[in-house]
Each structure stands twice: as C-alpha cells, then as structure tokens.
Design a protein around this nucleic acid. Structure first.
Lengths: 332, 332
DNA sequence: CTGAAAGCGCTTACAG
DNA sequence: CTGAAAGCGCTTACAG
C-alpha cells in the first residue's frame, strides 16, 4: 500500500503538505493541491488509520459489547446504535462476548488499546464494574444497573413497572393461576421484573408461582416442560423475554394447548419478531430505539453529563396482541 | 494511561526490556523481569494495540461485512465466524453495511486502514469486486458469486440444487400450483435458486409462477398479499428464505388459510428460528456453521489456497418439518 | 502557504 | 541478557 511519503514524492511536496490537503487543516496552494490529489488518485493511497489514530488518540470508533449476537434484542439495539453512530461519523465495533466475563474483559482491553472513543456495554456482570472505570474513555451501560456505579451513564427501562404491567394485564385477562418465568436473579433486569410481578401478586392476594430460566430459546423450551409439570393448572404465563415466550408458545402449541384460550402468554422487550410470529405476541415494550440513540449521544458528549444524570430510566408499556385476551368488559 | 516508558522507568529498565517481558520474545534476567511485572501491576499498564499494530502490520483482527444485522442468517454466520476466529486468537470486527455499496466500500477501507488480517464479506454487489482486489489482505466472499473473481475464495451453497429440492418436495407433497417467491435476480444466490425451481418445472411440465421479493420481513409481508391476489388458487409457496417464509406464514395465518392443509410452505437457509416457530418451518438447509469455519480457515492460511480451490460449493439438503406434508405413499 | 523535525507508543535489528 | 536507536505512517507545532 502506498504511504503518504510515496504520494509526497510523486507530487513533489512534503508529507506534511499531503496531510494538509487530505485533512483540509491548512490552506494549500492550488497547484500543489492539484498535484497531490493527482498523486493520491494514481497511487490509490488510503491513509493508514492506525497511524492516524496513534497520533490522534481517537479512532472514530464506538465499541459495543453485547452478551449474545443470537438474541434479537441485542442485535436490534446494536443496529440502532450503529445507525446513530454513523450519522455522527463514527463507526461501531461489535463484540459478542457470550455472557463471559473473561471475554468482556478482553473486549474492553482491546477497545481501550484501540483508542476507542467510548464503549456501550450491555452486561450484567457486577464483577466487570471495577474494570469499567480503569479506562479513560466514556462508558455507558445499557440494560443493566449495578450496585456500585462507576461509569458515565446507566440506561435501562422501568423493568419493575414492566413486571407489574404484565401481571396486571394477565389478571385483567382473567388469569388466576399465572406463573412467572423469571430470569436469573443475579441480573438486575430480571430481578426488577420479578419484583414487579411479586408485589402485584401480594397486593392482589394472588399466590406467587415462579420458575427461573435463562434468556434463550433452548432454556425456554426446557423450562416450559418443567413448568407444565409443576403447575399443571396454569392459566397464564409471564415470560422473562420475548424469545423465551416464543419457546413457551412452541411447547404449548406442540401439546395442543390453545393460546390464549387455555393459557395466556405475555413476553417482554417487544423485539420485531414478536409481532411477526403467529399468533402475534403480547408483550411489554422497551423503547430500544430511544435507548440506543441516547447511548450514542452520551458517548459523544464525552461524559460531560452531570452526575445526577447518570441513571436514565426509560418507560415501558403494554402491547396487547394475540396471545392474551381481555375479559369482555369494555368490549362493547 | 500508563505507557511502556512509564513502566520502564518505574522498573529501572529500558522500554525494550519491558517489551521483551510482555512478549516473551527474548529471555530477560529474572530480577528485572520481576520488577517489570511489578511495575505493570502497579500502573495497570495495557499495551497500546494501535502502536503495536502500526509496527506489526497485523491487528489480529478479521473483518466481517454483512448486509444486515437484522437478518438472522447473517448473525448466525457472524457468530460462527466469531467463535472460530477466537479459537485462533483473532477477534472479529463486524460491519453492518445495510446493503449499501458506499458503506461496503468504507468498511473495506477502514479494515485495510486498520491493518485487518483479512476480511470475510457477504455481499452481492458486483460493483464491489474491483475494490476487493485493491487491498493486500486476504478476502473471502461468502454467500455470493461474482462474474469476475478476484479474491481468495468464494464460499457458497448449491443454491440451484436447493431450488430444485424445494420444488421437488412441494410436488411430492401434492402441490400442482406452486408459486416461487424469488429474491432479486441481480443476486447470484437468488438467481440460482430460481433456476433450480424453473428447470424442475420445465422438466415436469408445470406452469411457472413467480413473484419477486427482498430478503426481509416487511417485504415478505407485502409480497404475500400480492401473491394471493395474483394466484388465488396457489397450493404451495417456495419462499426465497426463512424470514420471508415466516412472513408468508403470518399472512396465511391471519387470513385463516391452513398450512400445510391448504397451502404448503417451504423456506430456505434453515436458520435456528425456523425450527423454533410454530409450526416448524420446512426448509432447505445451508451448512452455515461449516461455511463460517471454512471462511476463517481460508483467511488464516493467508491466501495460500491454490487457484483451483477458489470456489467452494457446499451442499444443501431438505429439512421436512411441519409446514409441508408428503402425500401418503411410503407412509405405511 | 510550506518544509523539517519531533512525536504518538510500541518493536526489533544491532551492538555489546 | 540489555540498551540506544531507528522506524511503523501519520500529524502538528514551529519557523520561515
């Protein structure tokens, strides 16, 4: 690959001048300018970003660390971030860390070492927290909240409210023996949802019935079998997220259990898929787009965010679709 | 951030020595070694990869360029590549280029500028071809084939055979008025599938019925409406890929058309989702895992691939599931 | 407007 | 075994 020196000698100018015409930092005499452009054309010169970044301490890059590239919630989030970043002339580098602390660590190190201009991380690993503040680049955590808060911002949704809404809705649909499939309770996001459900049950004097399940398809499939075993009279299921809800539906369908007639079902997240499957999934909507964009904004303002603004909670909302049905009431 | 010089002075050695203990390139006296390790510990020093990469001309990075992060086919592929690369000590950098030539170009430039060790690109843009050979890094194209072949390898599946298998299967299921939803015909992958279908129809003296549709959910939804309009007596649908098939199913379901009883349906790709939705989708399997791993292998052997090995075609296979049903025949 | 020089943070011949 | 030096390919004060 041609270097800036090659271009310079070909154009009969100094490398500094070439740099100036490329970056437009200083006016350059028209004729030299022309010759430089010529030479760039002829050599097919592309400035080496590594060298540039070494000097600039910026790589116009935002790192995005997600626990799973297989979970549409995260790819949707990454897509939004990607779009927002590109609009500002930044690119994103996506790290898929498989929920693994070691991989999260190394992603973070690599990003720091690569002069990233910031990182957006969706991680629930409390253990990652200490690392997060070691690096002098803006960090925003999305879809999580930690005990000790060390980074520029935490963006998450009102999961507690989501849990309540889900329970409330199923109840309004006539369910009396609902089961809550909650996510691993070491995750804040899963815990808050569960607490919303729990508190609603207590207020309404409903019996709590809970099973626990990881946020993925395989786990959802297995857990549903177990759930039906343990609670054969279940009439409503609150899934910890949409992909688990899809798994639940699959098992119910296979067993010939009608949804929503026999069992009502509600998911969480409102990923695109949830309205594309048949029947369409009732779910709790998270404003993924808004969160993703906000995350990019925070990064690009380089942590000028006031301390008090560090936690930003986004509202969730109920999206009733085909896997639940309200008791006829206001229905004419 | 601490630099190698900080560590060196703290340990009372030269930067070169620090470099040697970090990289283990040359033996270092035990006491100095100790002091260096100490100093690294104390300063929390992380070597700057940008600087290292500037020298090394390698960044232990493989670029992966995909047209859409929303299409599970590509995220599945990316995931496999990610795994295979990590096993070899490489990381991947994922570029989501939204099917856009300009974004593909810039991703490629950035990767070259970032000293990537190779790039795996899933692009059907013939116009990208010239660029591809400009860079002196290994490039492998997956899921596509171009007229002019300029890169190290083309990995793709026997799409033609896939198209045939789909048509053959629907016919074996008793369909006589099938419609083929083909992808945009400027894409090799879509064209080959269609040709498989077409040739089968000709051989069997079946009327060809074709509509065209982009590879995404929204397009699939709209096209299905149109298809039912144009071919009200359709009894079998071959979708250009699984996500379009899912869209088709959605519309059929909404209209109360029974699958497979009234209309049989087959997809293409065999993404994970296809067996997770209800009913499970009959489809043509692509060996995504094998392809992804092979792509990494090719990159890491740095184009030592013999010329004749440049095109690698992987076999496809029929996966009959619940959206089609064979005529009772060998069924006892 | 423009060139020579220094420097970004590493690594590796080259001497010793 | 180890340090001084040069260099990876850029950019930006600094002089002019």
């Amino acid at each position: 690959m041609a270097s800036i020196r090659d271009v310079a000698s070909r154009a009969g100018v100094s490398p500094a001048t070439v740099s100036r015409v490329i970056n437009g930092t200083t006016p350059v005499a028209a004729d030299k300018r022309e010759r430089v452009l010529q030479a760039i054309e002829e050599t097919g010169f592309v400035p080496n970003e590594v060298a540039r970044s070494l000097f600039k301490k910026s790589s116009k890059t935002i790192g995005v660390i997600i626990p799973s590239i297989r979970n549409p919630y995260f790819t949707q989030l990454a897509d939004v971030i990607d779009e927002a970043a590109k609009l500002q002339g930044y690119r994103i580098v996506l790290y898929n860390v498989h929920h693994d602390l070691e991989q999260e660590r190394s992603a973070l190190q690599m990003l720091a070492a690569a002069n990233a201009d910031g990182v957006i991380v969706a991680s629930n690993n409390e253990a990652l927290q200490e690392e997060l503040s070691h690096y002098n680049m803006p960090v925003v955590v999305v879809d999580a909240l930690f005990q000790t808060q060390q980074v520029n911002a935490y963006l998450y949704c009102d999961y507690y409210q989501g849990g309540r809404l889900a329970a409330e809705h199923l109840t309004a649909c006539g369910c009396r023996r609902m089961v809550c499939i909650r996510g691993a309770q070491n995750l804040y996001t899963a815990q808050a949802r569960y607490e919303g459900y729990r508190d609603f049950c207590r207020e309404q004097n409903l019996e709590e019935r809970v099973v626990e399940c990881d946020y993925d398809f395989q786990a959802g499939l297995a857990m549903t079998e177990e759930l039906l075993e343990r609670f054969p009279d279940v009439d409503g299921i609150i899934a910890c997220n949409d992909i688990v809800a899809i798994s639940v539906y699959k098992i119910l369908h296979k067993r010939g259990i009608a949804v929503p007639e026999q069992i009502q079902l509600i998911g969480f997240d409102d990923i695109h898929l949830s309205s594309l499957i048949s029947p369409e999934l009732t779910t709790i909507h998270q404003p993924i787009t808004t969160m993703g964009r906000r995350a990019v904004e925070v990064i690009l303002q380089k942590g000028t965010l006031p301390k008090e603004g560090r936690q930003q909670v986004f509202p969730v909302s109920l999206v009733p679709r085909e896997t639940t049905r309200r008791k006829e009431k206001n229905t004419k």
